[in-house]
Simulated scan of single mutants.
Amino acid sequence: MKEALRKHIEEIVPLTDEQFDIVFSYFKSKKLKKKDFLVKQGDSVNCEYFVVSGLVKAFYSDDEGKDHIMQFAMENWWVTDYQALLHKTPAQLDIDCLEDTKLLCITLEDKDKLCAALHKMEYFFRKKSNSGYVALQRRILSLLNNDAKERYEQFMSLYPSLYQRVSKTLIAAYLGVTRETLSRLT
């Protein structure tokens, strides 16, 4: 776990061994089994999660019980219900494990302390946040402007490894189409 986090951070900022020891001291490890929930709607959320291994999905269930997948998060991705975390409101999303999953978690308070102690980490988190914002914007624009075939092609282009790890039903929910429509596209 430690090595995965260090490699991930050092893609953006270099760290000495001493600096990384400081960084790692702010994280706690968590292991979940397939089908376990990391976050449930209505929960309070106090951590941001780094996926070391495994796969999770963040989704919203509407009043009719239909699931809308907001995000998949696999190795080296970050996930949480950011609105709940940042605004201290109940979670609107469920996050559950599609595979056995190992995570590292950091509280918002500890993240702030870490960034104050080591400004390189403030830069790191800003870069990760900006990348996440760009990905979200691209996803929203795709949902607004692209037809189902174009959204499927974009998904396959951006995340080819997910196709092997995620059921067609979940891919369809992520793309905002029915399972039958997805079958016609593949």
Score class of each variant (00 low, 15 high):
Gly42Ser: 08
Val166Tyr: 01
Phe20Leu: 12
Leu162Cys: 05
Ser25Pro: 03
Ser157Asp: 12
Gly42Leu: 09
Ser183Gln: 04
Ile95Ala: 08
Thr169Ile: 14
Val79Gln: 04
Ser142Met: 05
Thr89Ala: 14
Val166Glu: 04
Asp100Val: 06
Asp21Gly: 07
Leu86Phe: 11
Thr178Met: 02
Gly176Ile: 02
Asp67Val: 13
Val23Arg: 08
Glu75Asp: 13
Phe59Arg: 03
Asp96Pro: 01
Asp21Leu: 13
Arg184Val: 07
Cys115Ser: 13
Lys120Arg: 08
Pro90Met: 14
Tyr152Glu: 14
Val52Asp: 09
Lys66Cys: 01
Leu38Cys: 09
Ala73Lys: 01
Glu10Arg: 04
Ala117His: 05
Leu143Trp: 00
Phe24Gly: 00
Glu75Leu: 02
Ile12Tyr: 06
Val45Leu: 08
Asn145Ser: 12
Cys105Lys: 07
Ile106Glu: 10
Cys115Met: 10
Met1Cys: 04
Asp100Gly: 09
Tyr174Cys: 04
Phe20Tyr: 15
His87Cys: 12
Ile95Gly: 06
Lys34Gln: 11
Ala135Tyr: 07
Asn146Tyr: 02
Arg165Tyr: 01
Lys57Gln: 09
Gly65His: 05
Thr186Pro: 02
Arg139Asp: 08
Lys113His: 09
Leu141His: 11
Glu153Phe: 03
Tyr123Lys: 13
Lys28Pro: 02
Pro90Asp: 13
Met74Arg: 03
Lys88Trp: 00
Ser167Val: 09
Asp43Val: 03
Leu185Ile: 12
Ser157Phe: 13
Arg138Val: 09
Tyr60Ser: 04
Asp112Asn: 15
Lys57Ser: 12
Gln164Lys: 10
Lys111Ser: 14
Leu144Trp: 03
Arg184Ala: 04
Gly176Thr: 03
Thr186Ala: 08
Gln41Glu: 15
Ala84Arg: 06
Lys113Phe: 05
Asp94His: 08
Met1Pro: 01
Lys102Met: 07
Pro14Trp: 14
His87Met: 14
Ser157Trp: 05
Leu103Arg: 06
Thr181Met: 05
Tyr82Cys: 02
Leu32Gln: 05
Leu93Glu: 05
Ala117Glu: 13
Ser183His: 09
Phe124Arg: 10
Phe59Thr: 11
Gln83Trp: 12
Thr178Arg: 01
Gln92Ser: 13
Tyr49Asp: 10
Thr101Gln: 05
His68Tyr: 13
Ala148Asp: 07
Tyr159Lys: 10
Pro14Asn: 15
Ala73Asp: 03
Pro90Cys: 15
Val56Pro: 00
His68Met: 01
Gly54Ser: 07
Asn130Tyr: 12
Pro14Ser: 15
Gly65Ala: 08
Gln164Pro: 07
Pro14Phe: 15
Leu55Phe: 01
Gly65Met: 11
Tyr49Ile: 11
Ser53Thr: 15
Leu185Met: 06
Asn145Leu: 13
Thr107Asn: 12
Lys30Gln: 14
Lys149Cys: 05
Asp17Arg: 07
Ser142Cys: 11
Asp43Gln: 11
Asp63Gln: 14
Leu5Asp: 06
Tyr133Lys: 02
Trp78Cys: 03
Leu104Gly: 10
Ser157Ala: 09
Thr16Leu: 10
